[in-house]
Design a protein around this nucleic acid. Structure first.
Lengths: 248, 248
DNA sequence: CGTGCCTTTGAAGGTTGTCAACTGTAGTGG
DNA sequence: CCACTACAGTTGACAACCTTCAAAGGCACG
């Protein structure tokens, strides 16, 4: 299997200051006191990833954690042989790699950039120091992790009890916040951040089924799919799809 | 839908001392210092649940967390209408309800006893006090949560990419540690802690499919299903089932 | 012994996966 | 500028797995 390129360890041209970081507000680091903040600022490493570049591969050893400053990462998990699922998309302020970090184990998934993405790398000693000074950070991470667990369980339920059509509608609604825009005519346009292939992986199905399902949704006037643009005239129709769920 | 009985808030007849608790060793509380331990011991509430009794229902407010002292709980999550999945089984030393506790939200699942089960209830103020004195506990919980997240993701992968037959084999192997016994002839017997109904919920399928799949495994000499006893003569055959995975 | 629930079995149908071929697009090099 | 390639996406045919519905069997409990 062809492996995507590993990131080239480029340092970001512009120095990012933690103190000024907008992404920080949405993250567990939001309430950090100044001393710890400047420590982070001094010690962090900034990486810049181009679309398709891989931040880390599944199975590699973890030595810290990464926080997305800007852009989007995809977390992808591989099967014993090749089959993959997209675990989730990670955007500004969110961290990746902390699962492996807290378990002191290897990465259980691969992180790759979907677009040009800047990432801050925090090494283990720095983290231990920071957590030691701010135990409240651990509580914040626990909340994030608890949330993700709830999401993962919800996904399992959706995958096993709902049709692909219902899951696709659900995913579109989920993408609305970050990737949706409403034009003057009141039409919602969701710009998919991922390929059909990856969309299939996200929903736990195959690209062919995605194609058929998008076509069915178009036929029924629920949405129009044009490449990565999805036009939705009537949101209620999407909600109906989720609620009806279809057989299975 | 018929609701199972709520627990009757019986206090356990025997007082359980945290200091002597065996279950504690397998849990995040294993390394707690004496002072905190006796605080826990004084403040905790012990509950005794009979099989089928419900510890808490989905949607109720969380006010602390529960630790299983002995027995087994099932965590069950309900759909918007009735359909349910079994999220996981919880045994000695493990905690339930902490997800909702850390999020300060409502329970996202229902916890019910599969057998006679003793549970210690730790209220929020007690927990905050204990966590405040022992931030290391938070790290322990983070590890647990991280582990469960990894399991949940693995389950999603199994559910979407593997046949029911493969998933059943996988589940049997997973139940081996806690519910398996090897007799003098070298035959492994796994005693299922759950009904077929729940087994279906655990694998994300239907009872009918479970029945058909068990029959198929018997036909092929992989295992013998007699009520809740599963006899497995050759473990390698089970491993083969998992690896082959079958189409889908 | 009857009742009720869980489990099993059967038949039918639908959703989805698989395989193969085709289309469209983007990128490359002549 | 255009042919060529590569690859993602689409379409069609087919099979298989699984769900659904219905009914019968088994087991515990009153």
């Amino acid at each position: 299997m062809l492996q995507p390129p590993l990131h080239s360890n480029r340092w970001a041209a512009s120095t990012l200051r933690c103190q000024d970081c907008q992404a920080r507000c949405n993250s567990v680091w939001g309430q950090l006191e100044d001393a710890s903040l400047s420590r982070l600022d001094q010690q962090k490493t900034v990486l810049r990833l181009e679309p398709g570049e891989v931040l880390y591969r599944q199975g590699e050893a973890s030595g810290g954690l990464y926080v997305v400053h800007s852009g989007t990462l995809a977390l992808r998990k591989f099967d014993d042989l090749g089959q993959s699922v997209l675990l989730r998309l990670v955007t500004d302020g969110e961290a990746v790699g902390y699962r492996s970090f807290f378990e002191r184990g290897n990465y259980r998934a691969q992180a790759e950039a979907l677009e040009t993405t800047q990432v801050c790398y925090l090494k283990a000693p720095l983290l231990h120091e920071t957590f030691g000074r701010n135990p409240a950070l651990l509580l914040g991470m626990l909340q994030r992790l608890a949330n993700q667990l709830a999401e993962a369980e919800e996904r399992f339920l959706m995958a096993t009890r709902r049709s692909v059509r219902c899951r696709l509608a659900h995913a579109l609604l989920g993408l609305r916040d970050l990737h949706g825009e409403v034009d003057e005519a009141g039409v919602l346009t969701v710009t998919l951040p991922i390929s059909r292939q990856d969309l299939a992986d996200l929903l736990g199905t195959r690209p062919e089924t995605i194609a058929r399902t998008t076509k069915a949704l178009e036929r029924d006037g629920v949405a129009v799919f044009r490449g990565r643009k999805v036009l939705i005239a009537d949101l209620d129709l999407l909600f109906d799809e989720v609620e009806l769920g279809g057989p299975q």
